[in-house]
Amino acid sequence: MATRHLRTPDEQGRPPAGPGATEPAEARRARALDHAYAVNAQLSAPRVFSHATAALIWRLRLWTPPAVTHLRQQSKPGGQRAGDVVRHVGLPESYGVIDGLPVTSLEQTVLDCALTMPPLDALVIADAALAHGLRLEATRDLLARVRKPNGKARAALVLDLAGGGSQSAWETWLRYLAARLGLPRPVLQFPVRTHLGVYRVDLAWPEHPVLAEFDGQVKYTDGAFGQDYSGRRALVEEKRREDAIAEALGVRPIRFMAADARDPDAVARRLLARFPPDVRAAARVDRRLPL
């Protein structure tokens, strides 16, 4: 079995401290990572962390931090099983080591997640992995070698939808809803040249034209990105940016926030309403992508 010592995308090992570090999701990520270290210290048999736990160790974005620790072992262990550890049979042909933890490759990690997780959860991980060097064709090759049919169609769909331009889990969520509606594939981080410079829009359908963005509230909070950070200044700058985009293209981005996730049908209606009648008429909900 080949072993490589790897560095995570953040290059420092542990996730960097920053805004939102005390939020519940970050606390759950920290607990899940600590649990992986504890499990690793208790085991003597060969093992490799996998699935959502591997994504966590790789420091990839997660829609939901894992509630259990996933690992691969050569065979099923005997005796009583721990409820907070899921053991998958079979060690990978090769693996890496990140901060002392044996972990599946980036490609195998994404594939394992795509085969077993809901599509949105897996897509968030795949998007993040693409931004950090995931080899998509190599992942598809691994999928082609999977013998069991369970999850293969879903995994292929996730790999087809994956895009490296999403810069947050919420941007992936917005693109996921657009895909579920049956809308054309958007351009990610679409560049717009304005009199103030070049701005990038999260999702764009320039041929229609439609622009959509996820707007996180944290950037309008004083101190969110350092002691001297001004939320009011950020709000003013965002208004200037939006005005410049509207002046350049003749259309304003439609904005969505985390609170909109409570009513995804309303998000779908608002987004669909921006498109011309022929696109709306052709759109069909993809039932393979559940809300």
Rank of each mutant, 00 (worst) to 15 (best):
M1D: 06
A2N: 11
H5W: 05
T8M: 00
G13F: 00
R14M: 02
P16Q: 03
A17R: 10
P19R: 08
A21N: 09
T22H: 14
P24F: 14
A25Y: 13
E26P: 06
E26M: 13
A30E: 14
R31Y: 05
A36E: 07
A36I: 05
Q42V: 00
A45Q: 14
F49Y: 07
A55I: 11
A55F: 07
R59T: 01
L60K: 02
R61G: 12
P66A: 07
H70C: 11
H70D: 15
H70N: 12
L71Y: 07
P77M: 08
G79C: 10
A82F: 08
D84F: 11
V85W: 13
V85P: 11
R87I: 15
V89Q: 15
V89P: 08
S94F: 08
Y95I: 01
V97R: 14
G100T: 02
G100Q: 04
L101M: 03
L101I: 00
P102I: 09
V103N: 03
T104N: 01
S105E: 10
L106A: 09
T109Y: 04
V110F: 00
L111P: 13
D112M: 06
A114P: 06
P118D: 08
D121L: 02
A122D: 05
V124A: 00
A128S: 15
H132M: 00
G133L: 05
G133M: 05
R135G: 07
R140L: 08
R140V: 00
D141T: 02
D141N: 00
D141C: 00
L142V: 01
L142H: 03
L143C: 04
R145D: 07
V146T: 12
K148Y: 10
K148M: 12
P149K: 14
N150C: 08
A155Y: 13
L157V: 12
L157T: 14
V158P: 04
V158N: 10
D160S: 14
G164W: 01
W170F: 15
W170L: 06
E171P: 09
W173N: 09
W173I: 13
R175D: 01
A178T: 06
A178R: 06
A179C: 08
R180F: 10
G182R: 10
L183Q: 05
P186H: 02
P191Q: 09
H195Y: 13
V201H: 06
V201N: 04
L203K: 03
A204E: 10
A204V: 06
F214T: 12
T221P: 07
D222L: 11
G226W: 04
R232I: 11
A234I: 11
E237A: 07
E237T: 01
E238K: 05
K239A: 07
R240A: 02
R241L: 03
D243P: 05
A246N: 12
E247A: 14
A248V: 00
L249V: 03
R252A: 15
I254Q: 13
R255H: 12
F256C: 02
A258R: 14
D263F: 07
A266Y: 04
V267G: 08
L272E: 09
A273I: 12
P277D: 15
D278R: 15
V279T: 15
R280E: 04
R280H: 06
A283W: 11
D286Q: 09
D286L: 07
R288W: 01
